[in-house]
Design a protein around this nucleic acid. Structure first.
Lengths: 200, 200
DNA sequence: CATCCACGATCATTATTTTTATTTTTGGAT
DNA sequence: ATCCAAAAATAAAAATAATGATCGTGGATG
């Protein structure tokens, strides 16, 4: 099954797969919601999943499907959006992760390896994952503050919105800056976007 | 000719086009540099151009080609990256602009219309272009300062780097905030990224 | 018990606005 | 080709607001 919100990309992937005698596309869609229902109908051997989808994200779709079909196998196919996406996808249960822009042989390799129970992480992906500092894990509250930071809100506005004191917001911001290893909020916003912690 | 750095996307586009009796793909590549040389060899009727390419951007490729072949016709095919990209592409001479994620019939329509000398701007694209405030044009110096803002530099650092006073940097930042219609540098960074004024 | 969350207070630094003024550049108009 | 007007870049000063660092305290949670 192919899940990608770009119809042309689905056509490309489908023609690569259907050109082989040992693979076939049994279903395709552009939304995570439909992916969940389609999976139940077709139970494909391997699902190729884009992460950036309208509404429900690819990670959420993987989680939803795997909660009902724990044996389901996923290969993520996406544009590079930072190490956070890689981490979340693998944590959700994806066994392969390839990046649009890699030669299409890589796609075939990944599907074969994952189908036979293996994993597939190309060197650039593995490297991005390894460079992730474990210290950069943010608490849920900190992620919430970070989202408002990215929205361009001041400490005072965030305090009002969350119903806490400005002092507390400052405290959160300070720990965010420490964890992201930056020195001001603007840099925090940029690295959060770069690493895929927050999506625009 | 197809120019896109995602091989799978090229396969998808090519199979849509080659399935028709009235069109054919004569060349394809993933870089702007090769697009320029390939164009000279094949002189395709219409060139399908992605904007986000490694090294040389799609806009630069269009400009380079049109400087030697002013009659050349371009349709931009890209993921939505903000109104600034649309504006720059049309200014560079593109006659069509479609977004990956639109149904593939749109691609065929656009190619036909542009080939017969017409234009093709889907409503969402036209709307994004219309919502561009003419007041938001930044001078080249201001864009330079904005790039350093996105890099997370302080006014003092920018002043040192550009060899000007901190007071001057403050002035530039203030006009940038006014033109982008925001109230602080963090918001400026976010909207600059959203609208495609600066690329990460 | 370690971590997260919340709060308070001080303090130095940085950011932003406003105003004023000089120099350079640019785009037309004559 | 030259002149004029508008725009942009530069700079300075002064005042207000916001930010970030660094202390410390306490409650809640798993």
């Amino acid at each position: 099954m192919i899940v990608d919100d770009h119809p042309l990309m689905r056509v490309g992937v489908a023609s690569i797969i259907n050109a082989r005698s040992d693979m076939a596309v049994v279903a395709q869609t552009g939304t995570g919601e439909e992916a969940v229902t389609l999976f139940a109908h077709h139970q494909p051997d391997v699902t190729l999943m884009d992460l950036r989808l309208p509404q429900m994200s690819g990670v959420d779709a993987i989680l939803a499907i795997r909660s009902r079909f724990p044996q389901s196998k996923f290969v993520v196919l996406t544009t590079y959006e930072g190490d956070e996406d890689i981490h979340r996808a693998l944590e959700a249960g994806a066994k392969g992760y390839i990046i649009k822009g890699m030669p299409y042989q890589t796609l075939v390799e990944a599907l074969l390896r994952v189908h036979t129970g293996g994993r597939f992480l190309p060197p650039p992906v593995a490297r991005a994952l390894a460079s992730r500092m474990p210290d950069s894990e943010l608490s849920s509250r900190e992620k919430e503050v970070l989202r408002h930071l990215v929205a361009g809100m001041s400490n005072k506005e965030i305090a009002g919105l969350l119903g806490i004191t400005e002092a507390t917001v400052k405290c959160h911001v300070s720990t965010i800056l420490m964890r992201l290893d930056v020195s001001d909020r603007t840099q925090a916003v940029v690295t959060a976007l770069q690493r895929g912690l927050i999506h625009l």
